[in-house]
Design a protein around this nucleic acid. Sequence first.
DNA 1: AATGAATGAGACTTCATTCAT
DNA 2: GATGAATGAAGTCTCATTCAT
Lengths: 215, 215, 215, 215
Amino acid sequence: MTTKKEKKKPETANDKKRRTRLSPEIRRKQILEAALVEFSAQGFAATSISRIAQRVGISKANVYVHFSSKDEIFETLLRSLSSLGKTQGNWRQIEDAEDVPGFIDNLVDATYASFTPEALAILRLMISEGHRIPDVLAKWHEGNVSARAERQAIIDEQVAAGRMKRSPLTEHFQFAMTPFVYAGVAKLVFGDAATEEVERMKDTHRKLLHQLLEP
Amino acid sequence: MTTKKEKKKPETANDKKRRTRLSPEIRRKQILEAALVEFSAQGFAATSISRIAQRVGISKANVYVHFSSKDEIFETLLRSLSSLGKTQGNWRQIEDAEDVPGFIDNLVDATYASFTPEALAILRLMISEGHRIPDVLAKWHEGNVSARAERQAIIDEQVAAGRMKRSPLTEHFQFAMTPFVYAGVAKLVFGDAATEEVERMKDTHRKLLHQLLEP
Amino acid sequence: MTTKKEKKKPETANDKKRRTRLSPEIRRKQILEAALVEFSAQGFAATSISRIAQRVGISKANVYVHFSSKDEIFETLLRSLSSLGKTQGNWRQIEDAEDVPGFIDNLVDATYASFTPEALAILRLMISEGHRIPDVLAKWHEGNVSARAERQAIIDEQVAAGRMKRSPLTEHFQFAMTPFVYAGVAKLVFGDAATEEVERMKDTHRKLLHQLLEP
Amino acid sequence: MTTKKEKKKPETANDKKRRTRLSPEIRRKQILEAALVEFSAQGFAATSISRIAQRVGISKANVYVHFSSKDEIFETLLRSLSSLGKTQGNWRQIEDAEDVPGFIDNLVDATYASFTPEALAILRLMISEGHRIPDVLAKWHEGNVSARAERQAIIDEQVAAGRMKRSPLTEHFQFAMTPFVYAGVAKLVFGDAATEEVERMKDTHRKLLHQLLEP
DNA sequence: AATGAATGAGACTTCATTCAT
DNA sequence: GATGAATGAAGTCTCATTCAT
């Protein structure tokens, strides 16, 4: 404990209002985190800077030290999120599977496991507030497209190698991801009430993929 | 009795707003229609009564003659929409098909045809603002569940009659609807940019159903 | 101003909302009565035409058939009330007493008996909203002054006749009315909580008058 | 109707409103002061936050920085006022008089001197808007009751000491305060038009007290 | 960097009043 | 005379944003 300068003010010992000064990067990150929670819970318009500041534990005005407007927060947030590219990260591991059944299981497990609250929050934001940032949306779309293309390439390889059965599904593998979106939306809209259904969906999903893809 | 009372504003444009007087039912409907557009485009919080009134062509105050609050408009709207039960109506016709291939085509066509702007608006509202009205949401869920059960029953029948091939899909036919939701969300988020993809999805969807269901 | 347009519309007979058509005088009276209740309970600004109409059992618009504005209702009301001249009516009876003790008792009884809810309502209106109608107030003041002069004359007579003891009180008899106002205000402000105190005041009032006036 | 061509905006360039920043305590006090004036002049409902803000010289929104609602302003105001306990403060000095005539003179002078505009404003508020805050009213009542008891005790002492003549008035000394309320109400309702009458009342009041209390 | 005070713009809502039947 | 529908004006309150310390 280094003795700081004696404050002449009779301090009430554990005052909550401790002014803490953090580096801009950290504060920005804190604010974006709080913003994600709030925006995704209430939507853009219904979220107030006040709430975000409160969640971070700073003053409203301080938010404006780090961002110049609510819009900027939103945009920065979505821009950063969209680069996350949800499942992309896992995809490498998925294809590490040694055989097709393993690949399918990896795919299904990894995909359904990616329903983190944060991912759902992003999905909700994209659906309900995406229109605010068309360029981000466009970029996200692009990202999706290329990720899709990548996945398709892998599948094509497998088919060419005779390890997967050719079918309309292998021609258009993105189709295999659709139940995933369904599950996400179900969770989004119905919350816990959807859990059971999603479980069942996952099961059917897996079975059908096995049936369709395995030679 | 000849006083015609031609109100003539000599100069300037005749922006003399003639008061139009309509029955409450019509006005309410107009307001709800406008509200659907606005709510679904901007969300609840970002939609102002002003905008709704403007869209209808009436004064803000007049909105309050017919609804007692913004919340009431929203609730009335969603309550009325949720009873629409999207595709239910068409389902009867779908199963009228004489054979399974016809049934599948009917199903796919009818389903993708139900992407009216209004239906998409409802979907968006349910996703982004559903939390405001948990009971409506619950009722909607119930409705969905029973519609699903009905569809399942029909499928079961077909399977029992040996006209459809049994598979994980026939066991859990709701799974066959998931690409539909995907397509809806794609349209919701990406708008016209999704058209092509949706078309392709529909095609794959149809082909796979044929492959999976026909004996 | 209003163009008449006789419309002979076939009346749907058994409508619950029986439109009753009353003579203007009766309606006006009804409206004024309702207005007194509302104005005095909530004050001018907090009273809505709606409430008045509701109390009468007619539509808002109908109020405007009989009065041209809220202000007019208020003014008409206060004008009519101020002419009531509270105790004036009783005063004749009071002085009918044969002797001074009887006169005093009559005076006290009659005065305290005049605390009807209506009289209190008027008092409250004069205090809280009188400023809206200075001329009515002035007229009321005048009325009070002359009533006071009349009373004073009677007292002077009694004193001259040696039936009342001369004192500062007989010189300025209005002073004898002050406890009355006190009691009124107490009732106004504290409602039932003041009842006991007012009773006691009346008693003291009576005793002191006896002591001061009787020779 | 009133087409005034008063457009005062062109010149006078320095309407650059300098933001003045004050401590909450001071602002709150300013707001409460302004609120007292406005509420008592127009009543609660007819007073707008706008007017209060204008009187203070700040923006409407700033009022809400210091109070959370109009009701809160009102309540805070009345609560603070009711604790003022009008004449209580002076009472000690009044009884400091060395003899009964001096006491009476002190009493009358102090009491009538307490008709400050502020005191009248409070009285008006209690009469016209007291019902909004029953608990404050009740507390005020209590305060009055105990002040009254205190005064009565002093009188009783004097009577016991033979320095005051026993009479219904000394038994119930609050009665001696009633002309005071009358005077207050007269001032409230008739304003300056009541001045003369109040003067005369004070004179009679003094004379009668002398006559009644001095042995 | 941090914040409390301040504010303009705008949202919802109410209400006196008018219009047309 | 009576009324339901309609509206402009105004009121309370919120909020993103700025200012000054």
